[in-house]
Design a protein around this nucleic acid. Structure first.
Lengths: 143, 143
DNA sequence: CTGTATCCCTATCGATACTG
DNA sequence: CAGTATCGATAGGGATACAG
């Protein structure tokens, strides 16, 4: 496990249209650390929930209804994970019936930015991906 | 399955620093389409491979050695998926022994940008997440 | 309403062995 | 070197049912 304490120059070295620049090394240590966070994005529901909470505070059932397709179990589990990682706060109102509200922390709000960038990109390029898939499948079937 | 044929105004409604703006609705159609692309990010290996290929053209074994922990099977499967979705090209040199090179397409290079943003964020905020986790676990154990 | 707990099925992935 | 095929282990996640 290598240690990279100073790594502010993440996207510094770009340029180099395509090849000819093997100077940009691939540091395993960084990837491990980065993946620890990114793996959350890999989660099927986490991104959607964070995006939804980006619109403000929400109750448990509100989220469940909004996400569409998520089971109660997965919602609970995912919210716990997000809370544990410091992305959301969980506020319980000891009323009857109980009322629990979830809201993004500062960290969660921070995360929202790169997440929205990715989401925008996904929406904008959705068609290109679908087209590529169709073409690929056509090529595969023809062969 | 709802159908959203027109959704060019992807990141149109931003602004709204934090709360007070419930006008930003959560459209399920968009999320479905976006997730179709984002799910690739969810994949454990895809992101790493795309990032690596962001440094230029690479051979199969080069990638395998660089990624660390990936099995041959997963590398093949992941690369096929990336190729199918139009992110990478696969070039075969019919030599003996065979030589296959993978390279990002324009689409893949495009994707690199939001991906790098996310990666930078992940690295920059890794410690905050770990701290949050530790605090959460401590709280949970204390109770 | 908001959770927890149980069961169970499936998709995923790693290890291994084999081909061109 | 690059890739396919097969076989297990296991974890993700859905469908309940139940509790505070």
């Amino acid at each position: 496990m290598s240690y990279a304490t100073d790594l502010t120059e993440t996207s510094a070295s770009r340029a180099a249209s395509t090849d000819t620049a093997p100077s940009q090394v691939h540091k395993p240590g960084q990837c491990t650390r980065a993946n620890e966070v990114i793996s959350l994005v890999g989660d099927k529901w986490s991104v959607q929930i964070v995006m939804l909470l980006g619109t403000g505070r929400h109750r448990f059932m509100e989220i469940k209804r909004a996400i569409e397709g998520i089971s109660q179990k997965m919602l609970t589990v995912t919210l716990r994970g997000l809370e544990r990682d410091g992305y959301v706060t969980r506020t319980v109102y000891p009323t009857i019936p109980p009322k629990v509200e979830y809201e993004l922390t500062d960290l969660g709000l921070d995360l929202l930015e790169p997440l929205r960038a990715l989401g925008s990109w996904a929406l904008a390029n959705h068609d290109r991906v679908v087209a590529a898939r169709t073409a690929y499948d056509a090529r595969a079937k023809a062969k």
